[in-house]
Design a protein around this nucleic acid. Structure first.
Lengths: 97, 97
DNA sequence: GCCATATATGAACGTCCTTTCATATTTCAA
DNA sequence: TTGAAATATGAAAGGACGTTCATATATGGC
C-alpha cells in the first residue's frame, strides 16, 4: 500500500507538509476554504498583522496552495484545489479522534 | 465543510504536520508503514545514520505517531494507526497528480 | 496630480530544528 | 563479568523559519 516514493517526490511532500504546518497559515487556509477572500478580510478573520498575513500568503502562493484574483485595489485569495481541504480534514480527524 | 477549529485543535494540527514534514521522518514512516521494523533495519532502509534515525524515532514516538515493542536487544517500531498512512497518501496524491 | 486605501516587500531578530559526533545505556552471550 | 551488539542521549553547529517594524508599491477617487 505505501511503498517508499523516490527522493524527488519525498522532497515535494516535505515541502507541502512544511508549508501546511504553521498556525497562521492553517488559519488562513481555513479562512478561504469556503470562498475567496480579500487580504483585508483574511487579516480581520485570522487576527494577525497585515504584514504577517501578506508574508504567509506569499508562502502559500509560492507553494501553489492558493490562487489569486485582482479587483481594483483588492486581491482575492482562494485555495488552489480540493486536495488541500482533504489534507486539512485528515489532519483534523487525526487530532480530534 | 471546513469551519475554523479552535486554537487548541489548530495547535495539535500544526504539531502533527510539523512532525510529518521532515525528509528523514517521512522515509522512516514509509519504512514501517507495512510492518514493524527494528531500528537497525530502519537505519539500513532509510540510509541515514543510526544516531539520526534514533533521534527522529524519538520525535515520532513523542508525537504518538509510532509505537514500540522490545525484544531482547532490539526495539521494533510501527505506525500508531491508519490515519498516518492516510495522511501520507493524501500528500502523495497531491504532489504526484 | 494628490490622497487614501490595499497590499507587498526587505531587513533584522530570536528561536526552533536537523544533523553530526562522541559517548552512554541496555541486554544478552560466552 | 567481560565483551559485543543494539539503541539512546547530550552537546554543539549550522541553517531555516516566523514575526515584527518600517517602508514601498499600486490602484482608484476627487
Amino acid at each position: 500500500m505505501a511503498k517508499l516514493p523516490d527522493d524527488k517526490t519525498l522532497d515535494k511532500m516535505e515541502s507541502l507538509l512544511n508549508v501546511a504546518s504553521d498556525f497562521t497559515r492553517l488559519k488562513i487556509m481555513y479562512s478561504i476554504s469556503e470562498d475567496e477572500k480579500s487580504v483585508s478580510e483574511i487579516v480581520e478573520e485570522v487576527g494577525a498583522s497585515q504584514s504577517l498575513v501578506s508574508h504567509q500568503l506569499k508562502v502559500l502562493k509560492k507553494a501553489n496552495l492558493v490562487t489569486t484574483r485582482k479587483e481594483k485595489t483588492k486581491v482575492f485569495y482562494k485555495l488552489a484545489d480540493h486536495h488541500i481541504v482533504e489534507l486539512l480534514n485528515v489532519v483534523y480527524d487525526h487530532v480530534t479522534e
